[in-house]
Computed example of a mutant assay.
Amino acid sequence: MVPRPEKQVRIVCADGVPVTADHGWPEHRVLLEVVGVDHLTNEDLMHTDLHRRNQIELAGYRLLVYSGRMLAARPDQFVLDVSRMLRAAGWDGTL
């Protein structure tokens, strides 16, 4: 189990651009994005997403990115990944 994330977490990227992540644990500086197929097949959108991801991480946040298909196929892996990311960010495991 992992703590419930906040929805629509607003942060400011390293380049000064404010963005909203789908979900996150701001107290641990961990964010979660769920992308659709268009983010993977549209080249312009893909480059925008990569730039955004870099700027989020340069601002000191950890970012996990999943597709809806990944979440549906392996929810157990999702929970494990989030748990590992939160623990690496200092979460002590309490809910």
Results as ranks from 00 to 15, higher is better:
residue 21 A to H: 02
residue 20 T to M: 07
residue 51 H to A: 06
residue 1 M to T: 09
residue 32 L to K: 06
residue 23 H to Y: 14
residue 14 A to S: 12
residue 11 I to K: 11
residue 79 V to M: 07
residue 50 L to D: 01
residue 28 H to Y: 15
residue 2 V to M: 11
residue 63 L to R: 03
residue 29 R to V: 02
residue 92 D to G: 12
residue 70 M to R: 09
residue 57 E to A: 09
residue 52 R to C: 07
residue 61 Y to E: 01
residue 86 L to E: 03
residue 16 G to E: 08
residue 84 R to M: 14
residue 21 A to M: 01
residue 58 L to M: 14
residue 40 L to E: 13
residue 73 A to I: 09
residue 4 R to S: 11
residue 64 L to I: 05
residue 52 R to K: 13
residue 19 V to Q: 05
residue 14 A to Y: 02
residue 89 A to R: 09
residue 79 V to R: 05
residue 51 H to D: 08
residue 75 P to A: 00
residue 14 A to H: 14
residue 18 P to A: 14
residue 81 D to Q: 07
residue 79 V to E: 13
residue 66 Y to E: 06
residue 49 D to R: 05
residue 79 V to A: 15
residue 22 D to G: 06
residue 62 R to L: 04
residue 11 I to L: 13
residue 22 D to N: 12
residue 68 G to E: 05
residue 82 V to M: 06
residue 29 R to S: 10
residue 14 A to M: 09
residue 80 L to F: 06
residue 12 V to F: 11
residue 3 P to L: 12
residue 83 S to G: 15
residue 10 R to G: 00
residue 17 V to M: 15
residue 56 I to T: 10
residue 17 V to A: 14
residue 27 E to M: 12
residue 34 V to K: 05
residue 4 R to L: 12
residue 69 R to V: 15
residue 35 V to N: 06
residue 67 S to R: 14
residue 40 L to D: 08
residue 85 M to K: 03
residue 63 L to C: 07
residue 65 V to N: 01
residue 89 A to I: 08
residue 53 R to S: 03
residue 90 G to L: 06
residue 91 W to S: 12
residue 32 L to F: 14
residue 59 A to G: 08
residue 39 H to G: 04
residue 89 A to D: 01
residue 16 G to P: 02
residue 32 L to Y: 10
residue 33 E to R: 08
residue 57 E to V: 10
residue 20 T to F: 14
residue 66 Y to L: 01
residue 88 A to M: 06
residue 37 V to R: 11
residue 53 R to Y: 13
residue 21 A to S: 04
residue 5 P to K: 10
residue 92 D to S: 13
